[in-house]
Computed example of a mutant assay.
Amino acid sequence: MENWTKFGAVSAELDIGGAIWHLKGLPDIFKGIELAANLRDQSMAIASPAGGWRGTYAPDVVRIGSLDGRNVEERHAPRAAYEGQTQESPWDRLHALYFTGYALWTYLTIPFLYTLPGFRTEELPAWKENGEIWRRLKVTFPESITSHAREQISYFGEDGLLRRHDYTVDVMGGARGANYASDYRNVRGIMVPMSRRVYAYDDAQQKIDEPLLVSIDIRSIDFQIE
C-alpha cells in the first residue's frame, strides 16, 4: 500500500477482444488502444490510433471524437442510457466507452481499491480451482464508485495475487462474468496481470468455457508519480 499510494496515474497499450464486441455490433473497437488513467478518481482517456478516435471517461460524462479533437459526441448521465437493455441490445460507441472506462479503471486498481472509504468486505469459504485453494473476498462497492455491480467477489491465490474476479453486469441485464487474471509482471513494485479472460459462470459458480466473452492483453504499462 505504501508503494501504491506513490502513484497517481497509469498509462498502457492494450488489445481488447472477445465475443461481446461482436454481439454489441462493435468488433475490434478496442483493438490496439492506448489509455491514460487517473488512479485517484475515476477518469480515463482512451485513444485508438488505428480507429482514428479519442475518448474520455468519467462516471457522469463520456465523450468521443476524432484524434484531432473534432466531431465530438458526448453523453451525460451515461448509465441511464442502458435502461431497458438486455445482453443482446446493440451499443453505440458511447455505450462501449462508458462500459470499458469503468471496467478498466476497476481492474487496474484492484485490490488496492478495496481499502478506500465506503468499501465493505467479507471473507467467504475457500474455493478450489486449477488444483489450487483460493481465498474469496466478497466486496460491496460504495455508491461513489462506478462498477459492474455493487457486490463482487475476488479470488486470491496462496501468493496473494488475484486469480479470478466474479460479478454481474448491471448495464448488460445482469450478465455474469468470471474474470481470470494471469501472466503477472512486476511494474514498479506493483504486480500487474497482463492477461485477462472473461467467461460466464453457472449457478454453481463454475466457469462456462465457451464463448470467451472478453479478452484483455496489456502490451505495455507504466505507473506515474503525481
Rank of each mutant, 00 (worst) to 15 (best):
L137M: 11
A80L: 14
Y107A: 12
G131S: 03
A19Q: 15
E74T: 12
L213A: 12
T115N: 13
I145W: 15
E34H: 12
F223Q: 01
G69F: 07
A200K: 14
T115I: 07
T100V: 08
G160Y: 00
T100C: 07
T86N: 08
I153W: 00
K207L: 07
I33M: 05
K6H: 04
V62G: 00
S182K: 11
D166H: 04
I153H: 00
V72S: 04
A175E: 10
G18I: 00
D60A: 15
L104P: 03
P142K: 07
A77I: 09
G25Q: 05
E2C: 06
V198R: 01
R196S: 04
D92A: 11
M172W: 09
V139M: 01
E73Q: 15
W127F: 12
A81L: 02
E83S: 10
D41M: 03
V62I: 06
P90W: 13
D15Y: 10
S147A: 12
I133Q: 12
P49D: 08
M1H: 12
S48Y: 01
D183E: 11
L14A: 13
L116T: 05
G157D: 09
M1I: 13
Y155V: 00
A103M: 05
P125D: 09
E210M: 07
E143P: 08
A175F: 09
Q87D: 05
S215F: 14
F156S: 03
V62M: 06
R40P: 09
K31G: 03
I20T: 10
E129W: 05
G84R: 02
G189H: 04
L23F: 02
R136I: 05
Q42V: 06
H76K: 12
W134A: 04
E73L: 09
L124V: 10
E123S: 11
T140I: 08
E210D: 08
S195R: 14
L94Q: 09
A45F: 06
G131V: 04
T121Q: 15
A126P: 05
Y102Q: 10
H148L: 07
Y155D: 04
E2N: 15
T109Q: 04
L113M: 06
R120D: 07
R93T: 08
